[in-house]
């Protein structure tokens, strides 16, 4: 069936903790079957937004519906439609991976036999088999994440919410999680994903909301945002400032360069990645200029903030001290 109703509509969603405004009049609309990413630094308010949508926090003001149900007045109905994988794996350390999944399946309402079947399919699908009977406390971070993801999928959620699913994972485990997410997306799951990595939002999302200080500072498809941020580039860092001038002259003749004298750096756009990198490296080698570094770089979250807001992202070091305080 084709559909029209959006999976999530939030209007003016606001959350204050005492005097502190963690989320400030946030608007969001997620079409069914799409992937939306909230991208922002530590303390931006991503988790707070997600927890409000998952009915774990009550908004101070504003409203939101999930699959047509109000998150405050119809919280129980929302909980039946949504599945949340929180930022920190929420599993029982002293149960095995399989016992954890069984408990989730039973709490969702399956009978004993059916729960066993559902769980065994998930174990296959998420490659948990190898450690299914190990206590969760003895699993690695990546293994836990997989069990945690599986735990969110014991029923078919209409909206899946993943809060920083790959933070703290090594690159290999990250690839595994990405592959799983891609499969889910292909199957048509509607997904809200938070992340601190531009690369991750770019790889997975249909649209991205850049968030800082609880506000949306920019939104668009990955290609729209990248067009504004700039794509990957090659950075050449010379050993001294004389070298920078030589390199600027040499590379400027062939490419559309940017020079940052303070960092003794010449940047060259590299849409063709490795081809551009080799071309630049060849030119630098034949020039004989001594360099510290020649590297291919993708834009980072910092670049995105620079380009879109004209300021670096603030990571709220000061505010973080309040994060652990129980209200």
């Amino acid at each position: 069936m084709t559909n029209s109703a959006p999976a999530v509509v939030a209007k003016g969603l606001t959350k204050r903790f005492g005097e502190f405004t963690a989320v400030d009049a946030f608007d969001l609309s997620i079409d069914a079957g799409t992937v939306v990413s909230l991208l922002g630094p530590n303390g931006a308010g991503k988790t707070t937004i997600v927890r409000m949508l998952a009915t774990l926090l009550t908004p101070t003001s504003g409203s939101a519906t999930v699959c047509g149900h109000d998150i405050v007045s119809e919280a129980d109905a929302v909980r039946g439609k949504i599945s949340l994988t929180g930022q920190f794996a929420a599993l029982e350390d002293n149960l095995t991976a399989r016992e954890n999944l069984l408990l989730m399946a039973r709490l969702r309402g399956y009978g004993k036999g059916t729960a066993g079947r559902v769980v065994d399919r998930l174990i296959d699908r998420f490659d948990v088999g190898e450690f299914r009977d190990k206590l969760v406390k003895s699993l690695s971070g990546g293994q836990r994440r997989r069990v945690d993801l599986a735990a969110s999928l014991v029923t078919q959620p209409e909206l899946l919410v993943l809060d920083e699913p790959t933070t703290g994972l090594d690159p290999r485990s990250r690839q595994v999680v990405w592959a799983t997410i891609r499969e889910l997306v292909q199957e048509g799951v509607t997904l809200l994903l938070t992340t601190q990595y531009l690369e991750e939002a770019d790889a997975l999302a249909d649209s991205i909301h850049l968030i800082d200080h609880g506000r949306s500072v920019a939104a668009g498809t990955p290609s729209e945002l990248k067009a504004r941020i700039g794509d990957q580039r090659v950075d050449v860092v010379a050993v001294d400032s004389a070298g920078v001038d030589t390199l600027a002259a040499l590379l400027g003749a062939r490419f559309d360069i940017t020079v940052t004298p303070a960092r003794r750096m010449v940047s060259i756009p590299a849409p063709d990645e490795i081809v551009d990198l080799t071309a630049v490296a060849d030119l630098v080698r034949t020039s004989g200029v001594a360099v510290d570094e020649v590297a291919l770089r993708r834009p980072t979250l910092d670049d995105a903030f620079m380009a879109l807001t004209g300021q670096p992202a603030e990571t709220q070091a000061a505010d973080d001290s309040m994060a652990g305080v129980a209200p």
């Binding site: 559909n3 109703a5 699959c67 078919q156 889910l184 199957e187």
Partner: peptide
């Protein structure tokens, strides 16, 4: 709302 349900 009728939403497509993922066949997870």
């Amino acid at each position: 709302a009728t939403l497509p349900v993922a066949h997870v």
